[in-house]
Amino acid sequence: MTAALEVRGLKTHFFTRDGVVKAVDGVDLTIAPGRVLGLVGESGSGKSVTGLSVLGLIDPPGRIVEGSVRLEGQELVGLNREAARRVRGRKIAMIFQDPMMTLNPVLRVDTQMFMALRAHEPVPKDAARQQALAALGRVGLPDPEQCLTAYPHQLSGGMRQRVAIAIALLHSPSVIVADEPTTALDVSIQGQILQEMQRLSADTGVALVWITHDLAVVSSLAHDIAVMYAGRIVEQGPAEDVLAAPRHPYTRGLLDSVPGEAQPGKKLAQIPGSIPALVDLPPGCAFRARCSRADSACETMPEIADLGGARAVRCFHPLEGR
């Protein structure tokens, strides 16, 4: 079976006045149809830039300097504008954190959905309407008819995000990249959206890249996890294995700092320090300044090493497995 999406050695750098920001510096990802990959990291880890790079949405001063992104075998890096436009929205789609920023506030939902449909194929108005209604129904909007004639500001946050998801689904893409799509929503609405997405990926076979900082969301949604730190993947593997027995000290630190599992009122295990600035990152493992296991070996960058069982970790001193 070919992978729905295969990213190899992706490097996206931003050439700023202060120096080169290596936001993404050698990322490999593979995701099969119908699977959900949780791409986890804190702010500045490069997870969003990875998502944008996959869709070719990096603007100057940023540039993909190296690597390959294959969508069902088709190379996306280096496509010209027109060819990229034909792929985007049809074979691969993106959902953003804030639907108020992605939906046009002065156009009705139906207008926006028809535009998205006709961007790729001429569709008569009736058929377009039917397709739009079907897409809105699929994401669990209670009254698709009424929603079609509404403006974005007339919808609640959760409904707006459902419309954004419906637009992403219009052309039945093989991959959807979702960048923190539930972060701005209330917990009860987040639960609804997560349930819909779980169902949609199982029903339609769409591969989901779910970018988030929230490990709890990933633990209930994703099949696989990739943890990013300072532009690189430091650990990846099946979700239950990584969560149950993390091998990278950073993954372990992240998991331990989530309140809720810890004994209430006791001190949480915390990672000292903060994420380093990505301009002129010193050589070696980017996590070593915050790591209790670091020694002189960590002054060179560890390669990501296969651990078997589909797991990999980028560390000279990985934690013991179970």
Partner: peptide, 19 residues
Amino acid sequence: SVPRLNRRHEGRRAFKPIA
């Protein structure tokens, strides 16, 4: 309906969100 970090894992959880 709150996703919980479940480290003793039973795999993916079915959500029971508030309607």
